[in-house]
Design a protein around this nucleic acid. Structure first.
Lengths: 254, 254
DNA sequence: CAAAAACAATCAAATATGTGATTGACATTG
DNA sequence: CAATGTCAATCACATATTTGATTGTTTTTG
């Protein structure tokens, strides 16, 4: 249970910020000595910083923890959606995989497919997941790395995508409002996602139930009946009426 | 010693290919049961394939093992060279890091520098190493991923590099012949490396002693006195005379 | 500078893990 | 289909690791 407790410490520090060692020991039901040992290890590994009597997430590791947290959030739903999405992939085609955590699960599914494919992606982790599969040729967009989710964004990436064409695009969503608009927390990412949809034959949006009825800062585009939405639960009334009006193609996983 | 033994199995299978379980048990001095358990784990993890009575490296994992092996080969020398190279980096500059295992060690050193930097690289692992450092802006070249060392190569990468300019370029070398020619095992990588040198103010070549007096298939370029070579041991007679004639700038680490 | 708190180091007990031998089930081969 | 070899599961034993208490030292703070 060692790594488990360290994960708990990480998560606690991430949520509550700087915390006294005593508090951590209380919360975890472990002794001070044990907590201190864990903290020493984690400091060595660079994921936290210790002060006298307390600890906090290392300034550089914030994004890393956040990414891990998002990856495991609603994991079962993401897996189900990914499996459903994978059914639509045909051997020999050229597909684009977005850089979200849901799409990362799709990459893990694709790995098991054993199909020849050409994959483009702007997700560094996605690329790494597929790189060693001999049947799959993996290409990465160029540009600035956005550490929050290890995605590649910026003008260099946008320009590169303009010269490409994909059979299928698999896009994760940060937030989907009831009026059908997708939005993102990062301006560059929103722009890039919008660009992608213009360069693909067919577009799949992957979103678990948590993403509905929420908005992020930057609009990406509005769902249309040219796209397919893959999700795990039936959306609410308000979105449902939009979906019906827009004749939206919704696929339910599991 | 658990992971150690599994590493030994991996390496043995990598060198000798498909091997009976009995042989592995003999070589490792462990019981059949233990070896089988290890094999079961490693199969689960996807790094090997088991047949009846024997095992071999999984077809997809060849490159991964080879990369790990290269990373730990002559590690101390690489670290020393990396430390020496890091001394030349000045805060606020824009540098390019190649995708080799020696340069990966340099990235690990840079991580500890705590300097603001703009880093471009064609090494996915290098990019990942630095991505979470807040002071450092990391940019990745776009293009095809060459799984052998997780580098990005190909025409897309070459085109992208043509629009960029770097203060310093740090280049790893696969092989350095006695006549001063660098060479590489991959055509694309050789081309890309050659391109890089034209886009940088100053060029540093990082090469441990193992790289001297050897040649790979594809020529990259010939060392000149416009470049600096960082290495750990004095090269041999033949190379020495070339270095003197070319007025080569050689920096010795450690 | 003195009191209080936090710390690292050490130790013994508890727990977890790795290990080889044995068994019966399964697969391969002639 | 029979003989051989390979396998996964289980057991008991040995070894490593984790853990909390205790110690003396270091750091902080009033």
């Amino acid at each position: 249970m060692i790594s488990n407790r360290q994960d708990m410490i990480r998560n606690y520090l991430f949520e509550k910020g700087q915390t006294p060692v005593q508090t951590l020991a209380d919360v975890l039901g472990a002794s001070l000595a044990t907590v201190r040992r864990d903290l020493a290890e984690m400091e060595q590994a660079g994921s936290i910083e210790r002060l006298h009597g307390s600890a906090r997430i290392a300034s550089g590791a914030q994004d890393e923890v956040a990414f891990d947290a998002r990856e495991s959030a609603n994991l079962l739903a993401k897996r189900a959606i990914a499996s459903e999405a994978a059914k639509n992939i045909i051997a020999g085609s050229t597909i684009f995989l977005d850089a979200g955590t849901t799409v990362l699960q799709l990459a893990k599914r694709i790995k098991l497919l054993g199909m020849p494919l050409t994959v483009f992606t702007n997700g560094v982790v996605v690329a790494q997941e597929l790189a060693y599969i001999p049947e799959i040729s993996v290409n990465l967009l160029g540009g600035r790395i956005r550490p929050e989710n290890m995605s590649i964004v910026g003008p260099l990436a946008e320009r590169m995508i303009d010269d490409l064409w994909f059979d299928q695009l698999f896009l994760g969503a940060s937030a989907i409002a009831d009026d059908g608009w997708l939005s993102s927390y990062d301006a560059d990412e929103a722009r890039l996602n919008a660009c992608m949809t213009k360069r693909a034959q067919s577009v799949y949006i992957l979103a678990d139930g948590d993403k509905f009825s929420s908005r992020a800062t930057y609009n990406v585009f509005c769902l249309s009946n040219a796209m397919k939405l893959i999700t795990d639960v039936a959306p609410n009334q308000a979105f449902g009426s939009f979906a019906q009006k827009a004749d939206l193609d919704i696929i339910y996983a599991e």
